[in-house]
Every structure is written in structure tokens, then in C-alpha cells.
């Protein structure tokens, strides 16, 4: 049992990732942050639109998309992967809609059927063509975020900037952040009041499918690092935590970014201490932060709820 939980060595856990081994862990922390922040920004809207489980479905079904793209194009170029994932995302959304509309199966069951079948196809492809696809089952589940530091650097003008996947993830996160800021009003209105959105001339179908596309792109770029299942946590946890603290959307977005930063840093420390999968540890840290928000949130936390409430008249007086 002693082997199982290693001794807590404060220096190894807290100091060295920032000093001796910073070249490795710095990239991992940055990558974790970029993945969580891109997922979290999209995830805010998934929570508000009650589409969290569509995120679940898409995160599973990009696997066959990636696998098929690999097999067809024989390349692991990012654009190929994005293409495969986008196609998979769209196919998933369409299949769910078709089953849900054309039969009496309800939406939840349709989601369950579609993503599990596609995921199964992906797993079979990976196991059959293991030699050609450089993904393995472990990567699908936990991701390989700890390998980012080993990747060759992307160079611009002869100067190494960042490992390739960190660079791609940075671009994706930047694009997502820009889009979320640019279309803030449209997203806000269409998420909270679709009737008003329609009357303002915002097409709900276009909004829905653009969000789905953005989701697919984010999920696929995060896929290698964190795997298919942990992505769901990255999508939902930051937004859900922020949702418990504030009632305002701008604050919620800022808080979800803070959550992403904290969870990736804490997660890396946790992973160093316990010597376990880094992506899982980041999610565990994020879940811990959610738990804190759930209990201690000043307005909506469990403690605040069970404290004797002031009567409205007294509250008005104070």
C-alpha cells in the first residue's frame, strides 16, 4: 500500500516543476490550460443550452473520424484530423436528429446509441490497424498530455516557439476565444431566449451548427492530449463551477478561465505526487474545485443554502 501512494515530497511536488523540470512540466501545464480553456469557453454555452450530453456524444464519436482520416490520408497532419473530426461531428449530430425524428426513440436514447456505435467503430479500427494509426487504446482513454514536451518544436524563422500540439492548441484556443468575444451578443441572446434571437434575425439553426462545429474542432484538438472521455469533464467542469458562483454570463466566462488555469496547475502537481495519468489528474483537480464551489459558493453553495435565510423584509432593511 505504501508503494501505491508515494511519500509526499513537497520539494519534488511543488518546487521542481517550476525550476529544474520546468522545460517539461511548463509545456504540460500550458497545454492543460489551453485545452481546458478552449473546452471550457464552449462548455459554458453547452451548459446554458442544456446540450452537455451532445458534447458527450461528439467527444466519443470523433474517434472513428480521426481513425478513418488517418487511414485514408496516411498522415497525422492537424488539418486531416480536423477534417475527420468535423465530418464525424456532423454525422453524429445528423444521426441523432434522424433517429430522434424518424422513430419514436427519445433523444437521450438516440444519443446513447449513436455515440456508442461510432465509438465502437473507432475502437475496432484502432485495434485492427494498430500499426498504421499511431493512437492506442490508452491514449483514447487518458490522453498523452505528458508527451507534449517531447515533440519537436514548431519553428518560425528558425526560432523554436512551441511543441507542435501546444502550438495548434494555442491557435484553436485563440480562435475560440475570439469567436466567443466577437459573437458574444448572438450567443447570449440565442442561449437564453431563442424567441428574441429569432426576432433579432439570428438564425438558431446556424448558431446551433456553428457551435457544434466549434465543439468538434476543440474536441479533436484536445483528443490526443486528454482522450475521449476526460474531454467531457473539461467541457463541463469549468462552466459548471462558474455557474455555481455567479449569475452573470461575463463573470461566468472569466471564472471558467480561472478554473481552467487553477485545475491544470493543480492537476499537474497532483500527477507528479501520485505519479498517475496527467489528464486524469487535471480533471480530478477540476472536480475538486467544483466540489469547493458546490459547498462554499457565497450565494448558492450548500452552506449558504442551509444557513437560516433572512426574511425578505429583514433583508431589505439591512
Amino acid at each position: 500500500m505504501n508503494d501505491f501512494i508515494p511519500n509526499f515530497d513537497a520539494r519534488a511536488v511543488f518546487v521542481s516543476p517550476w525550476t529544474d523540470t520546468f522545460a517539461t512540466y511548463g509545456w504540460i501545464m500550458l497545454m492543460g490550460f489551453l485545452v481546458t480553456v478552449a473546452c471550457g469557453l464552449i462548455g459554458n454555452y453547452l451548459i446554458l443550452r442544456r446540450m452537455a450530453l451532445v458534447g458527450d456524444a461528439i467527444s466519443h464519436s470523433v474517434l472513428p473520424g480521426i481513425a478513418i482520416a488517418f487511414l485514408v490520408a496516411q498522415s497525422r497532419h492537424s488539418l486531416v484530423m480536423f477534417g475527420g473530426a468535423l465530418a464525424a461531428g456532423i454525422v453524429t449530430t445528423l444521426l441523432i436528429e434522424t433517429i430522434h425524428r424518424r422513430s419514436r426513440v427519445k433523444q437521450d436514447a438516440a444519443i446513447g446509441i449513436v455515440f456508442s456505435s461510432l465509438f465502437a467503430v473507432g475502437v475496432i479500427l484502432i485495434s485492427l490497424f494498430a500499426s498504421q494509426i499511431d493512437l492506442d487504446a490508452d491514449c483514447v482513454l487518458y490522453g498523452e498530455i505528458s508527451f507534449v514536451a517531447l515533440e519537436p518544436l514548431v519553428t518560425i524563422g528558425g526560432i523554436g516557439i512551441a511543441p507542435e500540439s501546444v502550438f495548434v492548441m494555442f491557435l484553436v484556443a485563440a480562435v475560440v476565444a475570439t469567436l466567443v468575444i466577437l459573437f458574444y451578443k448572438e450567443l447570449l441572446v440565442s442561449s437564453f431566449d431563442s424567441g428574441l434571437a429569432a426576432s433579432l434575425g439570428i438564425n438558431p439553426t446556424i448558431m446551433h451548427y456553428s457551435l457544434m462545429c466549434a465543439l468538434s474542432v476543440v474536441v479533436v484538438s484536445a483528443f490526443r492530449s486528454v482522450g475521449a472521455i476526460l474531454v467531457i469533464a473539461m467541457l463541463i467542469l469549468p462552466g459548471a463551477t462558474a455557474f455555481l458562483i455567479t449569475y452573470r454570463l461575463p463573470k461566468m466566462m472569466v471564472l471558467s478561465v480561472v478554473h481552467s488555469a487553477l485545475s491544470s496547475v493543480l492537476g499537474v502537481h497532483l500527477a507528479i505526487w501520485l505519479d498517475c495519468a496527467v489528464a486524469s489528474a487535471i480533471v480530478v483537480a477540476g472536480a475538486g474545485l467544483f466540489l469547493l464551489a458546490w459547498i462554499f459558493s457565497p450565494t448558492q453553495g450548500l452552506i449558504a443554502r442551509f444557513r437560516p435565510q433572512l426574511l425578505p423584509i429583514e433583508a431589505a432593511r439591512t
Binding site: 453547452l46 451548459i47 442544456r50 452537455a52 450530453l53 458534447g55 458527450d56 482513454l141 487518458y142 472521455i229 476526460l230 474531454v231 467531457i232 469533464a233 473539461m234 467541457l235 463541463i236 467542469l237 462552466g239 459548471a240 455557474f243 500527477a271 501520485l274 498517475c276 495519468a277 489528464a279 486524469s280 489528474a281 487535471i282 480533471v283 480530478v284 477540476g286 472536480a287 467544483f290
Partner: peptide, 16 residues
């Protein structure tokens, strides 16, 4: 949201 959250968080603990 609660389902997705529990699913992935528990899975992460299990993964660790």
C-alpha cells in the same frame, strides 16, 4: 450537466 460532470469526474478518479 450533472450527468456529464459525474461521469467524467468519476472516470478521471478511476483513471488516476
Amino acid at each position: 450537466a450533472a450527468l456529464g460532470l459525474v461521469l467524467a469526474s468519476f472516470f478521471a478518479v478511476g483513471g488516476c
